[in-house]
């Protein structure tokens, strides 16, 4: 017999799984926090001096290591990369926001997988699989695709796969926080990506910040005008979402209206005048970059060694 308390706990767990990442994303991080970890800000510690190309190589190698080794390597690398945030401008705050963001991703994917993992998947992941049931869901949860029970193995599996993207995400954000878009694009320029495409990416990177700012403004104005005020404050995230949806079209139109001037301004400053474009600031490879490259090599060697030692990837993707 499923008691009232069990029902309450089941619903609490379900709401926690959905609500906790949402709370973290919207209340603790917010648009401003998100903006802070996605936009370059000038500072002068060693990460700002590392060539963006080397950082891209670093991110790619992190991705390779994480996807080919056991989960806890990914976890260690996530913590290691995140800890570098402390060296950035407003390092403590960026570390805090970055950690919240990674945590919300972890909790989100943990609860996005755990209740739904089938026994067949778990038996591939865990040889000699015997389920350790830690909770039984109400039968009607099956409508949402929940398995009948939540097992310890499902939690473990979900926790482990959650680390697949976090280290990559943390190192990618490091790139955008420590390099101006034009520095990144100069690097991409070496791969012969056409200038108009690079220009478009540069516009996009600058616009991300405006999108967050204006969307935030549109949402707040709607709240001021009374959206959601007749309802419980616990429904605020729903109305936040409604406001974001309603604000999308005016925000797009507002930014695109300015886009015409951006185009004219670029055209009247000779954009696409010649096939080849020069760059005033070169992004040279310096001694620091060789150190980072050495770390990259160490990571690759470590990857091979870890696999030889039997700590390679043990969890299938599908």
């Amino acid at each position: 017999m499923y008691s009232l308390l069990d029902t309450f706990i089941s619903w609490f767990v379900l709401i926690f799984g959905v609500g906790a990442p949402l709370y973290v994303i919207f209340k603790a991080i917010g648009f401003n926090g998100f903006r802070e970890i996605t936009v370059y800000s000038k500072y002068n510690t060693f990460l700002y001096r590392v060539n963006p190309a080397i950082k891209i190589v670093f991110a790619v190698v992190i991705m390779m290591v994480v996807t080919t080794t056991i989960w806890w390597i990914g976890a260690i690398l996530t913590v290691a990369v995140l800890s570098l945030y402390i060296t950035l401008e407003h390092g403590k705050r960026k570390l805090y926001i970055g950690s919240l963001f990674i945590m919300s991703t972890l909790v989100g994917s943990l609860w996005g997988y755990a209740p739904f993992v089938t026994y067949s998947t778990l038996s591939v992941v865990f040889p000699h699989f015997t389920p350790d049931v830690i909770w039984t869901w109400p039968s009607y949860f099956a409508i949402m695709g929940y398995q009948h029970v939540l097992t310890l193995q499902a939690l473990k599996y979900s926790f482990q796969i959650s680390f697949r993207s976090t280290a990559i995400m943390a190192s990618a954000l490091l790139l955008v926080m420590t390099n101006t878009p034009s520095q990144i694009l100069r690097t991409l320029h070496r791969f012969h990506i056409p200038d108009p495409i690079l220009f478009s990416i540069m516009v996009a990177m600058r616009t991300v910040s405006f999108v967050l700012e204006y969307l935030n403004e549109s949402i707040k104005i709607q709240m001021m005008r009374g959206l959601g005020s007749k309802h419980s404050k616990y429904l605020k995230p729903i109305f936040f979402f409604i406001a974001a949806m309603q604000g999308l079209v005016p925000t797009i139109i507002h930014i695109m209206r300015g886009g015409k001037d951006t185009g004219i301004s670029a055209d009247t400053r000779g954009f696409r005048a010649t096939k080849k474009r020069s760059y005033v600031e070169s992004v040279p490879i310096n001694r620091l970059d060789y150190y980072v490259l050495a770390i990259v090599v160490v990571l690759i060697v470590m990857d091979v060694a870890i696999n030889i030692m039997g700590f390679g990837r043990t969890i299938p993707y599908n």
Binding site: G108, G112, P196, F199, T207, V211, G263
Partner: peptide, 29 residues
């Protein structure tokens, strides 16, 4: 393509980024 077209595409891509990393995951929950 005119320069302004590249600007519009860039603006659209910025919205896609914000959507994909901020709004989309929220809704998918």
């Amino acid at each position: 393509f005119k320069t302004v077209d590249y600007v519009y595409v860039g603006i659209g891509a910025a919205f896609m980024i914000v959507w994909n990393f901020f709004v989309g995951p929220f809704l998918d929950k």
